[in-house]
């Protein structure tokens, strides 16, 4: 008997509590920048694609939902195609952790529902954004040894000028 009255009382008290639910989608909850939502591909500060098609995101992916093919232009590697099957993605963020160039990033956007499952397959043009995402200054080729247009051998960070092998000095 006491139990029943106690429950009724507690339920009555809830009338005066603040609501936990929000009227989504009119009101949206706050999601931190580190939230693991929709995956994007970012660009470096010069506006070039950051992704170098190294395949590490695909290798790290526990559900194997990333597929890409390496292409090469003027010494720069880039993905010829890059597709993510979001109907398989579990938003674990391993791909972002594995990425050596900060190209692949997870964003606080989760509103990706589709009526047609096929539409959950995102191609490169769906993934590539025009900004740098969470890492504004990083450019992979500035720290790697490959020569690309605009950055010759020896011009990366902490690199000496190329050796002149014809010099006689030791």
């Amino acid at each position: 008997m006491i139990g029943i009255i106690r429950t009724l009382w507690l339920t009555f008290l809830h009338l005066f509590h603040k609501n936990d639910t929000v009227p989504y989608p009119e009101t949206k909850p706050y999601l931190s920048p580190r939230y693991r939502g929709r995956i994007i591909l970012s660009r470096d500060p010069n506006g070039e694609e950051r992704c170098v098609a190294c395949n590490l995101c695909a290798a790290a992916c526990p559900v194997d939902c990333i597929s890409l093919q390496k292409g090469e232009k003027d010494g720069r590697w880039y993905p010829e195609f890059f597709q993510i099957n979001f109907s398989r993605c579990i938003f674990c963020g391993f791909c972002e952790e594995a990425c050596p160039t900060y190209a692949i990033q997870l964003t606080p956007d989760f509103e990706m529902s589709e009526y047609v499952r096929q539409n959950l397959v995102y191609e490169k043009q769906d993934l590539l954004i025009s900004g740098t995402g969470k890492y504004p200054d990083y450019s992979f080729y500035n720290v790697s040894g490959l020569a690309i247009p605009g950055k010759d051998k020896g011009e990366a960070e902490r690199e000496a000028a190329p050796i002149d092998i014809h010099a006689l000095l030791p």
């Binding site: 939902c65 990333i66 597929s67 890409l68 099957n85 398989r88 959950l120």
Partner: peptide, 15 residues
């Protein structure tokens, strides 16, 4: 460690 098993032909069919 082969990758992309659920994505490599997803542009043809997601199934």
């Amino acid at each position: 460690r082969v990758s992309g098993r659920t994505a490599i032909r997803s542009h043809i069919s997601v199934r």
